Computed example of a mutant assay.
Amino acid sequence: MAAASWGASYAAVEATWAVTGTTVQWKEHSAYAPGVQLFLAALALLAAGACLAGTRTLAKAGRVAVATVLSVALAVFVVGTNGLPIYVVTMATLSGIESATGLAQVLLNTAGAVLLLLVALSYRRRLRGACPRCGWPHAGAADGPLAHPAASRAPGRTRAAVYLLMCGLLPWAGTKTIWTLGGDVLGVAGDDWQRASVAGASGPSKATASAGIDVTVLAATVGIFLLLGLLYVWGQVFPRWTLFLSGRRVPRLLPLIPAWLTGVPLAMYGVVLLVMAPLMAAGVLPGIKPDPPFTSSSGITWFAWFGGLAFGGLGIGLVVAARSYAARTRPICAGATATGSPK
């Protein structure tokens, strides 16, 4: 019902923006066309109808239609969450919001992606004969308390993969740290970088820069902290340094929601950069025109590649770690007895 309500509300907002000609930014100096907004409104209404239809017993054609609409809508609105991490960083550092309607659009897309994912997951479980709530095939009602498994760390292969992905942060973070400390790299002088980054920056950004710390590098360390929590036991049971929470179970969605919401957009953004940077270096795509403090197209291309490694590595790492965490912490309805593996 929540997903259907979101679909109707989303459609109303998008249609209103399209009719009134409201500018809704989707990237710097680019806005959604009214036709795209009307398409998104129609898709949201279709998704709302699919959510309602998915609760009923349908023939094969109906099940295929519901699954198709949910899949397409989920993919579209997941792509629409792409700017979420950037908005989070700018708001956390008090750097200001470039576009209020752009932020509203990203938040609406994010809410829709989350709700449609939950509906699609529940629908898939129901079709496979599993409990739509916990995903385990069992007899008995799908209500009442949930039984949680014992805390455990991620398998060795998962940890190794995540650590390898985290290494992608090193070239990007190292370059920005050198600039912040006044050094020169990629043809960019540290003093020029500091002047460009401090211009119009907020108090917190200036404060961290004066200490030789780039605010985006600091934000990446928060992502690393989240990654480690997803991999180890202290992400499932509050450790001793959390004082009054020590020993209590960590709510399952507390790390999963930020991991999914930041991991997926970062992964998409990073992959785009990793594809574009080599194509620009090879001349297949036109190089980016140097803009101060950059002095050459090659410098921007290298930095784009570093950014792809960093954002893609952190984003994919969060997705991999979150998937492992979700599997290791999946509960089962307490009044039921599992008869197989979760779906």
Score class of each variant (00 low, 15 high):
Pro171Met: 08
Lys206Ser: 14
Gly96Ile: 07
Gly174Leu: 15
Leu186His: 03
Leu228Gln: 13
His148Lys: 03
Trp234Cys: 05
Ser152Lys: 12
Ser95Cys: 08
Gly96Pro: 00
Pro155Phe: 04
Ala160Ile: 08
Leu218Arg: 01
His138Glu: 00
Thr93Glu: 11
Leu118Trp: 05
Gly235Ala: 03
Ile224Lys: 00
Asp214Ala: 07
Gly212Ser: 05
Thr221His: 07
Pro204Asp: 04
Gly112Phe: 03
Ala209Ser: 13
Ser99Met: 01
Cys131Arg: 08
Leu121Met: 12
Thr110His: 00
Leu115Pro: 00
Gly112Tyr: 02
Val217Asp: 11
Val233His: 06
Ser197Phe: 14
Gly190Leu: 06
Val114Cys: 10
Tyr123Glu: 03
Gly183Cys: 08
Leu116Met: 06
Thr93Trp: 07
Leu116Thr: 09
Ser122Phe: 06
Leu116Gly: 03
Ala139Glu: 15
Ser205Asp: 07
Leu115Ile: 00
Leu227Asn: 10
Thr175Gln: 05
His148Gly: 02
Ala173Cys: 11
Leu226Trp: 04
Glu98Trp: 14
Thr180Pro: 10
Gln105His: 15
Gly168Val: 10
Cys134Ile: 12
Ala160Phe: 10
Val222Gly: 15
Asp143Phe: 04
Leu170Gln: 06
Thr175Phe: 07
Gly96Thr: 02
His138Phe: 03
Met166Asp: 08
Ala173Ser: 13
Ala120Glu: 04
Arg153Met: 12
Ala111Cys: 14
Thr180Val: 11
Gly112Val: 02
Ala150Leu: 12
Ser210Val: 07
Leu227Gly: 06
Ser95Gln: 14
Ala141Phe: 05
Val222Arg: 00
Trp179Ser: 10
Ala111Met: 10
Pro137Ile: 11
Ala100Glu: 14
Gly203Lys: 02
Leu146Val: 11
Arg133Thr: 14
Trp172Ser: 10
Leu164Ala: 15
Trp193His: 11
Leu107Trp: 03
Leu94Trp: 13
Gly223Ile: 07
Trp172Met: 13
Ala189Ser: 13
